[in-house]
Amino acid sequence: MVERILEINHLKKHFDMGRGTMLKAVNDVSFHVNRGETFGLVGESGCGKSTIGRTIMTLYDRTAGEVLFNGKNVHELPTKEKFKYYRSMQMIFQDPYASLNPRSTVREVISEPMEVHGIFKNKKEQLERVYQLLEEVGLNRDHANRYPHEFSGGQRQRIGIARALALNPDFIIADEPISALDVSVQAQVVNLLKELQVEKGLTFLFIAHDLSMVKQISDRIGVMYLGNMVEMTAADQLYERPLHPYTRALLSAIPIPDPDIEESRERIILEGELPSPINPPSGCVFRTRCPMAMDICAKEKPVWQEVEQEHYVACHLYQESSGTSAEPKVNILSK
């Protein structure tokens, strides 16, 4: 039975830039995450994916819409429940060099959340828990009294993971957890996250720009562009049958480490650059770079709808009144 642990409905987050300008970082995004799965959120820089993560974490207040965790609106929780929410929702950050306090030992870093939430009455039990966490993430107890600078990037990220696990959360938001690491170390950390997920039944929201890694780890993927979600479906489906022109372009832009494939495959090169989220294009935000743009794209914003089972897309190519079909009205491949 699939249970929705997190539901995002029409979430908007705008930042006031002063002088009446608004930066529309997230503009009407809806999706859900099922318990025990990994949901990948991908998009290029400035698409709003990190803002979504931070809004879920209530680090930002929302402008409109709602975030439901286990059915409760997280931005309207009473203080006591808020503490409970923070215990079940934790975050892993991108830069393992900046996210650990250089003046705290590893033990202090990992025990801080437990102290804030008053988990253990005595220090000894707490220390035992720190040791246990260190071993779970592939470090050992001797590391507890060292400082972050004594560790490599991959090891630091393991410390960050141990800290996120300290409160036994159900849900972890990983915001670009591996993009600062070397390729061979990235694989180590991704494998660790996968193992922990199976062991502890964790749910992940995995935010990244590296589609190949996201595909590797995710069950379902949402693709974002300029504050909007443009497509959402199962990971394999997204790669086998991408519908939105942006998803297609994104997939074809990623070089594959295999010369034969690289030389033979066709590539959609997008023209131009990302428009500003302060003044996004009218209608569909992607239309300025879209190779398939039509007249309607400038006038109307495409509706976010399910065109195949569990396959959502917001694009005029697939909008046929209400009788939805996944066949585009224009032949998208003939270019």
Partner: peptide
Amino acid sequence: KGLLRSVPRLDLKGGKLAAIEGT
């Protein structure tokens, strides 16, 4: 060989990545 195996491939199905242990 390890480096080539440790990168995820867009065109292949997932599974466990072959990480190179150590640093």
